[in-house]
Design a protein around this nucleic acid. Structure first.
Length: 318
DNA sequence: ATATTAGAAGCTGGTGATGC
DNA sequence: GCATCACCAGCTTCTAATAT
């Protein structure tokens, strides 16, 4: 079960680590209630008082392994940015990681700052275009990090961000439709992979890849929906003109497919034309087969739901 | 350890405007 | 006419501070 913790949950878990007890209300969280309390029995209610939660001895080592580093990293970040770090802030872990991402790429994001809607849908991808404006607390944190009072009313004419995880000694380059995989750069840096964000009509950025890097194998990681795959076709064409080959990363598990009409997803298949109108020649046999299957079931596979390193390994080991 | 309180933030649901 | 959206006020939830 994936942990989906808010900041107050992190604070309370840390309190349990330091004091072995807390009276914070954290059983509303499924991961804490089901996994930490019921399943693993690392935490329990104080006998005779169900308002207080106590830690068991085993909890301490579990916290060491699973939470300590993350919590310290997040706390250091919030303090460094001069953001409130008390438990009333309703940041989720995803929010904090995204704020760290924004801070990392601040200069580049500021160069071509978009409207709050576009910014939200690209940077807070899975939560949609109105996520940020509906959360004043989070929005002010973003503005503070960027050093702005508000977002512009209009998009810049040429909205391109050079968002890249550079590698000093790259062995392969992966172009990513979404920034999700760029949000944990420390995991990528050790691997020799270089990640480039090419989503949101950002494919002009390919021209900035230095020619000596184009000799490495180049892959494309995307949502397997009509939008993501049609960008692949455009990139493939662009690369062909440079005589460079690019390959699509094929999902390592197919049961991650979810219905096309899920929340904040806005890319539909066209059932009336073959392969939804995608250029058949751009796809290998098994790729076309998967696309046809997704069209038939009216589903898509979200890039973010896969681990990029596993995805890469799956596609390169044979 | 427990109870009380204030402040902050999000949620909810009504309202009116806008667009198809 | 129906659906969607922005806006706003009032309500709820939660923490932190303080007192007992």
């Amino acid at each position: 079960m994936k942990r989906e913790l808010q900041w107050r949950h992190f604070k309370a878990l840390n309190q349990l680590y330091i004091n072995q007890y807390t009276n914070a209300k954290i059983t509303d969280n499924g991961y804490i209630a089901n996994v930490l309390i019921t399943q693993k029995k690392l935490l329990k209610f104080k006998s005779g008082n169900n308002k207080i939660i106590e830690a068991t001895p085993k909890y301490l080592s579990f916290y060491d392994q699973n939470f300590k580093q993350d919590f310290e990293q997040y706390t250091r970040f919030l303090q460094a940015m001069d953001l409130e770090d008390d438990a009333r802030r309703k940041y989720t872990e995803y929010d904090i990681q995204t704020l760290m991402f924004i801070s990392e790429y601040k200069d580049e994001l500021l160069k071509n700052l978009t409207t709050i809607r576009i910014f939200s849908s690209e940077v807070f991808k899975t939560h949609g275009s109105k996520y940020l404006e509906n959360k004043p607390g989070l929005k002010s944190a973003v503005c503070k990090i960027l050093g702005i009072d508000d977002f512009p009313d209009k998009d810049p004419k040429n909205h391109q961000w050079r968002l890249v995880i550079d590698s000093p000694a790259p062995t392969a380059i992966i172009l990513c439709e979404n920034i999700a995989h760029l949000k944990s750069p420390w995991k990528i840096r050790e691997t020799g992979l270089e990640l480039w964000y090419v989503g949101g009509n950002n494919i002009g950025i390919i021209d900035f890849i230095s020619p000596d890097k184009l000799k490495f194998p180049i892959y494309y990681s995307c949502d397997w929906d009509f939008h993501g795959l049609s960008i692949y076709s455009r990139i493939k064409y662009k690369m062909k003109q440079k005589s460079v080959e690019i390959n699509l990363l094929y999902p390592y598990v197919l049961d991650l497919a979810i219905p096309v009409n899920s929340d904040h997803h806005n890319s539909n298949w066209n059932f009336n034309i073959p392969l939804s109108g995608l250029n058949q020649a751009d796809y290998k046999e098994r790729e076309a087969k998967l696309i046809n299957q997704l069209i038939k079931e009216n589903k898509w596979i979200e890039e973010e739901s896969m681990d990029i390193l596993e995805l890469f390994k799956y596609n390169t080991s044979s």
